[in-house]
């Protein structure tokens, strides 16, 4: 009985909170000198830009342009971040040598790099990809490194008594044990990368969701701005859902709910 009630509540409450959100939005938008469009106006604008191109592209194309920048940077970030994090966690000399530099560069917001990157690489695709890369590589490095540091020493002992050499300890024990931490880093990296691409596009781009927001600002088109903000939120949510599903497939010992 109680179980059933919990289920109904957990399905009902999100609906209620979403409903409240829209009611509040509608109420704010209707105020006399309001700057924000109503949900209805936003929806109309959203449907319109799906059909009518802005800057030679419809909304799906803009989303795809942004997404492509993120995905390219994201895969580079995984390769670079995991190798760098593993090297930090595994090799003491490397850590002593490189960690101080990393600690100085790490807290710099990726967006602060935009002017320099544009100076170096112009305004093509490359600078956006690099900015997203900067934003998404850091969480992967940090999670990989701390995952390696926090590995259960008992598992290393078990590996040693079973005859693992140093290299086997890394490949057979340490890396698999670190996979959940790496995946957590990857999830953070994807959402941070998505934020960076919007920021990068707001400064210099001809296409992309960030560009659309700037276009909305320039033409006083608040419905366009809000529609794009919604799109950004929804895309980010979808990406994160996909990754959570992927985690369950990639490491069932950690995430799936079998008993």
């Amino acid at each position: 009985m109680k179980h059933n009630k919990d289920r109904i509540l957990s399905m009902l409450l999100p609906l209620i909170s979403l409903g409240l959100f829209f009611v509040l939005w509608f109420w704010l938008a209707r105020a006399e000198d309001s700057m924000i469009p109503t949900p209805y106006e936003t929806l109309l604008r959203l449907l319109e830009i799906c059909r009518k191109p802005i800057s030679k592209a419809t909304l799906p194309i803009h989303i795809w342009v942004s997404l492509r920048r993120v995905l390219i940077a994201f895969f580079c970030a995984i390769v670079m971040g995991v190798s760098f994090g593993v090297a930090l966690g595994w090799n003491r000399t490397f850590r002593a040598l490189v960690n101080p530099i990393f600690e100085i560069l790490r807290p710099i917001p990726p967006i602060a790099w935009i002017p320099l990157i544009i100076l170096w690489c112009g305004i093509g695709e490359l600078p956006k990809v690099i900015i997203v890369l900067i934003g998404s590589v850091v969480p992967i490095v940090l999670n990989t490194y701390s995952g390696m540091k926090e590995i259960d020493p008992l598992l290393l002992d078990a590996g040693k008594v079973l005859g693992a050499g140093r290299r086997q300890l890394l490949w057979e024990i340490t890396l698999p044990a670190t996979v959940p931490a790496i995946l957590a880093g990857i999830r953070t990296a994807l959402s941070s990368g998505w934020m960076c691409v919007v920021a990068a596009e707001m400064i210099a781009a001809r296409q992309g969701v960030g560009f659309l927001i700037v276009r909305g600002q320039e033409s006083g088109d608040t419905a366009l701005i809000v529609a794009c903000m919604l799109v950004i939120g929804v895309v980010s949510m979808l990406l994160s859902t996909v990754l959570i599903k992927l985690e369950g497939v990639l490491c069932p010992w950690q995430f799936s709910k079998t008993k």
Binding site: D152, L154, L155, D157, A158, K160, V161, L162, G163, A164, I173, P176, A177, V179, C251, W253, Q254
Partner: peptide, 16 residues
């Protein structure tokens, strides 16, 4: 190493 068997109190199984 590997020529002595070891059974741990906390099992120390590889969870993956």
């Amino acid at each position: 190493m590997g020529e002595i068997g070891f059974v741990f109190q906390k099992y120390a199984l590889f969870p993956w």
